[in-house]
Computed example of a mutant assay.
Amino acid sequence: MSSVLPDDLKLGPVKLKVSDLTRSLAFYTEIVGLRLLHETQGEAQLTADGLTPLVVLREVADAQVTARRSAAGLYHFAILLPTREALGLTLRHLIGTGIHIGHSDHLVSEALYITDPDHNGIEIYSDRPRDTWRRDTQGHYIMASDPIDRDGLVALAEGKEWNGLPPGTVIGHIHFHVQSLDSSRRFYCNVLGFDIVADASSRGALFISAGGYHHHIGLNIWAGEHAPIPPAQATGLDYATVVFPDEASLRQTLDRLGSAGIAVAEQNGFRSVTDPSGITLRLVTV
Score class of each variant (00 low, 15 high):
residue 66 T to I: 04
residue 282 R to W: 02
residue 78 A to Q: 01
residue 232 A to C: 05
residue 34 L to T: 07
residue 34 L to K: 06
residue 117 P to L: 12
residue 25 L to N: 09
residue 222 W to M: 01
residue 82 P to H: 08
residue 112 L to A: 04
residue 92 R to Y: 03
residue 130 R to Y: 06
residue 271 R to W: 14
residue 33 G to S: 07
residue 268 N to H: 13
residue 257 L to H: 12
residue 36 L to W: 04
residue 38 H to W: 13
residue 1 M to H: 13
residue 13 P to S: 10
residue 137 T to Y: 09
residue 46 L to I: 11
residue 103 H to Q: 15
residue 276 P to D: 00
residue 28 Y to N: 06
residue 146 D to V: 10
residue 81 L to F: 08
residue 185 R to K: 15
residue 231 P to D: 06
residue 148 I to S: 02
residue 115 T to D: 11
residue 286 V to Y: 14
residue 280 T to A: 01
residue 88 G to P: 08
residue 163 N to M: 14
residue 192 L to Q: 08
residue 223 A to Y: 00
residue 63 A to P: 08
residue 71 A to K: 10
residue 202 S to D: 15
residue 246 D to A: 13
residue 74 L to P: 00
residue 259 S to N: 12
residue 145 S to Q: 11
residue 91 L to T: 01
residue 193 G to K: 04
residue 189 C to P: 12
residue 232 A to V: 13
residue 101 I to D: 05
residue 32 V to L: 13
residue 151 D to N: 14
residue 19 S to G: 14
residue 34 L to A: 04
residue 58 R to Q: 13
residue 153 L to M: 07
residue 153 L to S: 02
residue 142 I to M: 07
residue 260 A to R: 03
residue 244 F to M: 06
residue 82 P to N: 12
residue 121 G to H: 05
residue 77 F to G: 03
residue 240 A to V: 09
residue 158 E to A: 14
residue 99 I to N: 06
residue 46 L to Y: 07
residue 4 V to R: 15
residue 224 G to T: 00
residue 161 E to P: 02
residue 242 V to C: 11
residue 200 A to Q: 11
residue 131 D to H: 13
residue 256 R to H: 05
residue 211 G to W: 11
residue 221 I to V: 15
residue 125 Y to R: 00
residue 54 L to S: 09
residue 149 D to K: 13
residue 81 L to K: 10
residue 275 D to W: 00
residue 233 Q to S: 14
residue 7 D to F: 14
residue 118 D to S: 04
residue 18 V to N: 02
residue 119 H to N: 14
residue 33 G to R: 01
residue 176 F to V: 00
residue 144 A to R: 14
residue 244 F to P: 01
residue 166 P to T: 01
residue 144 A to S: 15
residue 260 A to Q: 03
residue 147 P to N: 05
residue 201 S to N: 01
residue 105 D to W: 12
residue 79 I to C: 02
residue 111 A to M: 06
residue 16 L to Y: 04
residue 69 R to H: 15
residue 39 E to R: 15
residue 27 F to C: 07
residue 209 S to R: 03
residue 201 S to L: 01
residue 278 G to N: 02
residue 77 F to N: 05
residue 195 D to K: 05
residue 182 D to N: 13
residue 190 N to Q: 15
residue 58 R to Y: 04
residue 9 L to R: 09
residue 128 R to Y: 11
residue 151 D to F: 13
residue 19 S to P: 02
residue 109 S to E: 12
residue 242 V to E: 03
residue 112 L to S: 07
residue 125 Y to G: 07
residue 160 K to M: 03
residue 125 Y to F: 10
residue 134 R to D: 04
residue 242 V to P: 01
residue 52 T to I: 10
residue 133 W to N: 09
residue 171 I to V: 09
residue 217 I to T: 03
residue 114 I to F: 11
residue 92 R to N: 05
residue 76 H to C: 09
residue 166 P to I: 03
residue 44 A to L: 06
residue 156 L to G: 06
residue 96 G to P: 03
residue 174 I to L: 06
residue 123 E to Y: 03
residue 208 I to W: 01
residue 204 G to L: 05
residue 12 G to V: 07
residue 68 R to E: 15
residue 96 G to N: 08
residue 130 R to F: 05
residue 286 V to R: 15
residue 79 I to Q: 03
residue 100 H to I: 11
residue 259 S to G: 05
residue 275 D to T: 04
